[in-house]
Amino acid sequence: MRRRAVVFHGTGATPDVCWYGWLAGRLRARGYEVEVPHHPGTNVEPIATFLPRVLAAHRFDAGTVLVGHSGGAALLLALLQELTEPVAQAVLVAGYWRPPGEEAEPVLRESYDWERVRAGARELCFVNSVEDPYGCDAQQGLEMLQRLGGTLVVRPRGHFGDADDPCERLPLLERLIGGDDERQDPRGG
C-alpha cells in the first residue's frame, strides 16, 4: 500500500509557511506521496459546510498520515469523526478541541463523538506547547489525550510557527510520523 500524507495548514496560513514544505520534502524522501493543500476556508467557514469539501478533495485510507497545525489540527478532529476507514496516523500540532480564546472558532464542532474520532486513526499524536500564545497549549493537548488516548508531546516552543515564530523546521514531526515498519494498532496490541 502506498504511503500518503496530507498536511493541513493553520488558520490564515498557506502551504508555503513555517515547516509545512520542509516536512513534505522529508516525507517525500521517505517514499510518501504528500499533499499540502491550500484550504483558505479553514476556521473561516463553519465546519458543517467546510468539512464536506475537504472530505471530497482528498483520499483517506489505511496508508494515510494526517498532519494538522493549529486550525488545521482542530479540523482533523471533525475529519476523523467522519471517516469510515481509519487512517494510519493523525498528528495534531498546536491542536485544540475547545475555543482557545475569546474569538469564534468556526472549525470547531459544538460537541464531538470521541469514540468515532478515536476510531478514525490507528495512532494519534498531539504536540502542544506550555508557551502557546493563542491558547492551543499543553492543557488542550492533555484534554484531547484524556478523551482519545495516543501520545502527547509537550515542548516549550510557542505555536510551532506563526508570524512571530517562523519555525521553518520541526524535526520532531519527522520522528513521530510512522517509519517503514508496519505500525500496530495501539488498541489491539
Rank of each mutant, 00 (worst) to 15 (best):
R98H: 13
R98K: 15
P99G: 08
P99Y: 08
P99T: 10
E102P: 09
E102H: 12
E102R: 15
E102C: 05
E103Y: 10
E103F: 12
E103C: 04
E103N: 08
A104S: 12
A104K: 13
E105I: 07
E105Y: 06
E105K: 14
E105V: 12
E105W: 10
E105C: 10
E105S: 08
P106V: 11
P106T: 08
V107G: 05
V107T: 10
V107E: 04
V107Y: 03
V107I: 13
L108C: 09
L108T: 05
L108Q: 03
L108P: 02
R109D: 07
R109S: 10
R109C: 12
E110W: 06
E110N: 11
E110R: 14
E110S: 12
E110D: 15
E110A: 14
E110Q: 12
S111Q: 15
S111E: 15
Y112W: 07
Y112Q: 04
Y112R: 04
Y112A: 04
D113A: 13
D113C: 06
W114Y: 06
W114E: 02
W114N: 00
W114S: 01
W114L: 03
W114T: 01
E115T: 15
E115M: 11
R116Y: 08
R116A: 15
R116Q: 13
R116W: 05
V117K: 01
V117M: 06
V117A: 07
R118C: 00
R118E: 00
R118S: 00
R118N: 00
R118D: 00
A119Y: 02
A119I: 03
A119Q: 06
A119V: 04
G120V: 05
G120R: 01
A121G: 05
A121I: 02
A121F: 02
A121S: 07
A121V: 04
R122P: 02
R122F: 04
R122K: 11
E123K: 02
E123F: 01
E123A: 07
E123H: 03
L124P: 00
L124H: 02
L124F: 04
L124D: 00
L124K: 00
L124I: 03
L124Y: 00
C125W: 00
C125G: 01
C125Q: 01
F126C: 03
F126R: 00
F126V: 04
F126S: 02
F126T: 01
V127M: 10
V127W: 09
V127N: 05
V127C: 11
N128V: 13
N128A: 13
N128D: 08
N128M: 09
S129F: 10
S129C: 10
S129Y: 07
S129D: 12
S129T: 07
S129V: 09
V130C: 10
V130N: 11
V130S: 15
V130I: 14
V130F: 08
V130L: 15
E131Y: 06
E131P: 03
D132H: 11
D132P: 14
D132E: 12
D132M: 13
D132S: 12
D132C: 14
P133W: 12
P133C: 13
P133Y: 13
P133R: 11
Y134H: 14
Y134L: 15
Y134K: 09
Y134T: 11
Y134M: 12
